[in-house]
Design a binder for these strands. Structure first.
Length: 454
RNA sequence: UCCCCAAUAGCUCAAUCGGCAGAGCGGGUGACUGUUAAUCACUAGGUUGGCGGUUCAAGUCCGUCUUGGGGAGCCA
């Protein structure tokens, strides 16, 4: 049987004698002579109106099923005489696949709070807001792949299971097959400690040293006890790594990526984004147009400190050279001072990771953070230290063992070159694109401290 | 992990000074209509998050735990 997606039906240019659609009933309105169904199949935001006349086999097939039921409707596609839709289906036959008991089905024909919908994450995709959010997720991922492909990058797949426990990106989840209480790691699956990855960066660097330009796009895990609307224990990270590139190249890449993805989403997800513009964040579309077209502000850490000092603001955390920028500082820079995406570069080496390239001034490293209004840090990256002696010195300075980084140091022993990369938090990008304020609502099944349902 | 706020019907929320547990939506029943957040009438629905305390009397005050939200730290 030929089934048509509602998305395709709604863009029809002519009537059709026989179409078949499948979907879930969103609402049902009964009259004496006619019943109206709003059918949604997830292919797009808009529902398809199905008209079921009284006394027909179609109504008999429908029975008393309403909101939430999964059905198949066959009939004629005709121009709708009513207001509100161009097309409707005059139903000839209806098959019910799965009813939804209205006394127990949690989704009603009304607005629910995000907090309530999180408790039924397995069902919330059947609402307008969440189906739109997850369609945007998919389109954003597609746009990211398209961008990198157009720039000569190859996607690489970095391992989720890692023996490295010293990447310094946060607390790690331990993975083990040992029985509870057993502590002898030599008897564990890998004969050593194993963790879930916090970043594919080190592996991506290795792959960039042969493929030139690569990016990984995969899950990462942080066992931090972070309870904020911007952190999750499992999230996707986009991590490009470029050989023969410096910090300037990296900033251009980050800016072009965000421009490109935002611009293409404004077209490919126009209907879904307009939903968020109306009901979630007023003015979202205008803000996205700015993000898609305006150059990012670019300042050094030193300049950022000067701006903050001159701001006259009474910050909770005092501003001084040498300490990291706090959330309130980042927000001031991106939201108030510049009013657009802002790249801050060249942080003091003491507050950044060991692998970042030392600048010639001896005190800063070639790091960059991309700060976005309302989101905060969307991207963090750096030019990597390609000089073996300086890298070894930095590792030892931090009290770590060179042997732990043996394979990573090989990349500097053989064919080293200036290279750079960053990590982009995919969920934060989706928050930016939708205006959704809580990361738990852009992840289909969010993992946060104490929450492992579904 | 720290600070602040909240928890009452399936959902969203009221309940005055501590004094009879309420509404809208949703559900059920019926009416009506090419309807579109349909409309109208009737109706069912409660151990006020758990435990303990104060009081003649606790949804309301106190302690504690749990859960959720906001802010901070950590970061993407």
């Amino acid at each position: 049987m030929q089934k048509t997606l509602i998305r395709d039906i709604l863009s029809a240019t002519s009537p059709a004698r026989e179409v078949t659609v499948c979907g879930w009933i969103r609402t049902r309105r009964d009259g004496k002579g006619v019943t109206f169904l709003e059918l949604n199949d997830g292919s797009c935001l808009t529902n398809l109106q199905c008209v079921v006349d009284a006394g027909t086999p179609a109504l008999e097939g429908l029975g008393d099923n309403g909101t939430g039921a999964a059905i198949m409707v066959s009939g004629e596609l005709v121009p709708s005489p009513g207001k509100g839709q161009a097309w409707e289906i005059q139903a000839r036959a209806i098959t019910v696949f799965g009813p939804a008991d209205p006394e127990r089905y949690p989704l009603q024909k009304k607005r629910h709070s995000d907090e309530f919908l999180r408790t039924i994450a397995h069902l919330r995709v059947r609402t307008n807001k969440y189906s739109a959010a997850f369609r945007i997720r998919s389109e954003a991922a597609y746009a990211i792949h398209s961008f990198f492909r157009s720039q000569g990058f190859y996607e690489v797949h970095c391992p989720v299971l890692t023996g490295s426990d010293c990447e310094g990106a946060g607390e790690m989840f331990r993975v083990t097959t040992l029985a509870p209480g057993e502590r002898d790691l030599s008897k564990d699956f890998f004969n050593r400690a194993c963790n879930l990855t916090v970043s594919g960066q080190l592996e991506a660097e290795a792959l960039a040293m042969g493929l030139g330009r690569v990016y990984s796009f995969g899950p990462t895990f942080r066992a931090e006890n972070s309870n904020t609307p911007r952190h999750a224990a499992e999230f996707l990270m986009v991590e490009p790594e470029m050989a023969f590139a410096d910090l300037g190249d990296l900033m251009d890449l980050a800016e072009n990526l965000v421009h490109s993805v935002t611009d293409s989403l404004l077209t490919s997800c126009a209907t879904d984004i307009s939903l968020f513009d109306r009901f979630v964040e007023k003015g979202l579309i205008d803000r996205l147009k700015v993000i898609a077209s305006e150059p990012f502000a670019r300042i050094t850490y030193r300049e950022a400190i000067e701006i903050l000092k001159k701001s006259g603001r009474d910050f909770v955390y005092p501003v001084s050279y040498g300490t990291d920028l706090q959330t309130e500082h980042e927000r001031y820079l991106a939201e108030e001072h510049f009013g657009r995406a802002t790249i801050v570069t060249d942080y003091p080496r003491e507050i950044k990771a060991f692998y970042m390239r030392n600048n010639d001034d001896g005190e800063t490293v070639a790091a960059m953070d991309v700060l976005v209004p309302r989101i905060g840090e969307l991207i963090g990256g750096s030019q990597r230290e390609e000089r073996l002696d300086l890298l070894e010195h930095r590792i030892l300075e931090l009290g770590q063992q060179l042997s732990d980084y043996d394979w990573y140091l090989d990349l500097r022993r053989f064919g080293t070159n200036p290279h750079a990369g960053f990590g982009l938090g995919f969920e934060r990008l989706i928050m930016m694109l939708t205006g959704i304020a809580n990361i738990r609502d852009v992840l289909p099944f969010p993992r946060t401290p104490g929450n492992l349902d579904f």
